[in-house]
Amino acid sequence: MDLKLDHHSEDRLTIVEVEGEIDVYTAPRLRELLIDLVNKGNFHLLVNMEKVDFLDSTGLGVLVGGLKRVRAHDGSLELVCTQERILKIFRITGLTKVFGIYASVEEAKEAHGRDK
């Protein structure tokens, strides 16, 4: 399956919907979207990965790159993910300590609201 990307804003939070496979072939499109969002002043990003079938280290690199960009503007990049096969990759690489990972968009929005 290819990669489908969409995004919308709710208050100060920009929710990025990702569906399909994030690998060495498709990750550049996600990278471009994150860069574009940051360049347009969206510094609080929530990436919903519930419909991601496959994620490799290239995808991890893109997410880490996005986090670095938003942090440069005192922003945040957090994830929604409950799929064990995807979470396992974050655990193996120690990135569960770097990203806020939530079980749902609603849960992430509530946490984001508390942090405002």
């Binding site: 280290s57 991890l60 690199g61 880490v64 790159g65 670095k68 193996i92 690489t93």
Partner: peptide, 25 residues
Amino acid sequence: RFDDPLGQLPDTLMTGFGIAVIVGL
């Protein structure tokens, strides 16, 4: 350094992550 992924160069990061993922799986 996996304790500081934000301090890594992107290429180094992906190479290191790739091998780490293989070893982990």
